[in-house]
Design a protein around this nucleic acid. Sequence first.
RNA 1: GGCGGAGUAGCUCAGUUGGUUAGAGCACCGGCUUCAUAAGCCGGGUGUCACCGGUUCAAGUCCGGUCUCCGCUACCA
Length: 674
Amino acid sequence: MLVTSALPYANGPIHIGHLVEYIQTDIWVRFQKLVGNRCLYICADDTHGTAIMIRAGKEGRSEVDLITQMSRAHQADFAGFDIGFDHYGSTHCEENRMLCGEFWAAMRTAGLIVERDVAQLYDPESNTFLSDRFVRGTCPKCGARNQPGDNCGSCGATYSPTDLIDPRSTLSGAVPILREAPHLFVQLEKLHAFLETWIDQGGALQSETANYLKGQFLANELRDWDISRPAPYFGFEIPDAPGNYWYVWFDAPIGYIASTLQWCKANGGNLDDWWRNPDCEIHHFIGKDITYFHTLFWPGMLHAAGYQLPTKVHIHGFLNVGGEKMSKSTGTLVAAETFLKHADPGFLRYFYASKLGARVEDLDLGADEFVDKINSDLIGKVVNLASRVGKFASRTGLADTYPDDGGLFASAAAAGDEIAEAYEACEYSRAMRRIMELADAANPFVEHARPWDLNKDPAQLETLRDVCTVAANLFRQLAIYLAPVLPKLAEQCGDWLGDPIRSWDQSQTPLLGKPVQPFVRMMDRIQVEALHQMMEESRTPEPATADPASRWNDSDQPLKAEPLAAEISIDEFAKVDLRIARIIDAQQVPEANKLLKLTLSLGGEERRQVFAGIKAAYEPEQLIGRLVVIVANLTPRKMRFGLSEGMVTAAGPGGAEVFLLGVDEGGQPGQRVH
RNA sequence: GGCGGAGUAGCUCAGUUGGUUAGAGCACCGGCUUCAUAAGCCGGGUGUCACCGGUUCAAGUCCGGUCUCCGCUACCA
């Protein structure tokens, strides 16, 4: 079988959010290898695209220089967390260029490619077409300034970058111009029927994902996929369309194959054994953000080029920290490197394992929960089991026959199948729970056997040896079951008992008649301060903007929408009698579309009935009791629903966007506004 | 608005096809212990299984409805 994790983009360091995926995959791969499956774990850096090109330009170096350095950093981070790739390549390699050409030719032959002109914003100063994220401007809907080209961070509207008011290139600050260029498209609709069948019958997807695709994409005609980018672009030039490059999402997944090919070259393998062999399972582990690339485009590409389709696409959710999205400003976006400075990588591996299931669900890392889980499970239950008999065991060695342990070893051995099934199904949290149950059962054995008393009586040496034999073997079982998650622990256990852990089956037979090495401590408790420190270190404060105007980022739209009125004198203003009033009752007017009926108090017994057009913006209950500003000397107006004796002041474009004027603390009903 | 998931002890969760008195770990309280890394053992459940209704001899579990939270999505890939 062949297993992949998504290719990390060569534009930033690995952080604990990425690691969810690599740890999830690595556990699965280690499990497969442990049970004896032939398994290759393939990954690579994803290196192409505008972002890389621009960053390299900014840093004044070549793209190759940038991605080379980034790849080194990524691999060091992964190694630090014991992610055991069989091969780690790069999408920027000759193998990938060759394979891209092969896929391309196949797709051309299949008649999937068409050419069409696309108008895109172009930066005339840096001579680059601008993808959405490199254009910023004023939101056409709400008028918020300095918003990205695809959607508004303020009102959430989505639009195309050409809709932006006053657009600017983030590269040069230049005003982008609209320029047409021919693009090449994949007509995915031609593969509609194939994809439908694959999704329905392949069993490759979690049910929620299949459901999502069917409802979201396959229910309609599939749109053509824009697969080329005009120069300049860091990537591979399309052989039969000079001046055009494959879009990064074309060559990235092909990188899985290219990286496998590199492995084959280095290890004497045959690529078709892995990618064109119906007997070879192919498993992709990805995050939910790139679902459709891997479940629509990629299967389509593989199908067109005659490669084996994925057996399973395992999709996981995102990581939250402390119940919130990771962010640089709160320091929850902890780099892999930073984590390693403060804590054992095994802790993160175990924590994720204890939280991961087979569903597409986000998981949460809480500092206290993390510390509790590590200290009580790993330290208190697992490692401590070995530690309790460590000193004695190295003196007594292991007995020649397995002593009576009340059935503990046998029942833990019997649990092996269930635990294995949980690993296989990616239900790691279930596996961890079962393993901890075994650890819970093992510790009382030591307690009741009282090896510390036996140790004082030389005549009891045999019994002591038996107790140590049981405890050491129960610990070894745990280490084997945990080996996919905690490879270091398995190694330490192997060193201690002089028998390396290589296979899942070792959990079924006790280790006997061997000397035991001096016990060395395996893990240390973690303090919650360690987590706080790594977050503190990861915090990069929101850049404080010097210019107050840009800090608030207020739009000029409202003023443009409603320009200033003609000048008036102070006397004219004085004619308008504005008063503070308290809303003492607010009622729906069922027949009215926009109106609420308000009863206002101006203090004392003075009451006003006012109809206000704020129905869409406010619930009556939330209005009662609050102070508003009203025009108190307005001629009463007879309306369909009754007399309106004044007007409540409010701003905003209307509809739900209505904002009542408030009164600061201390203002009283009846007071005039001057 | 649509789709999906969740709601069980203070916290994290388990609870299989309905079936005794609803569970585990952690936390907490009491006692014991000292081999072990402020570790361990024994005992202790403090719950309106979100809410309402229905089916049933029997509902955390099945059905209908309501509420709350989360994720995705709203024609952008």
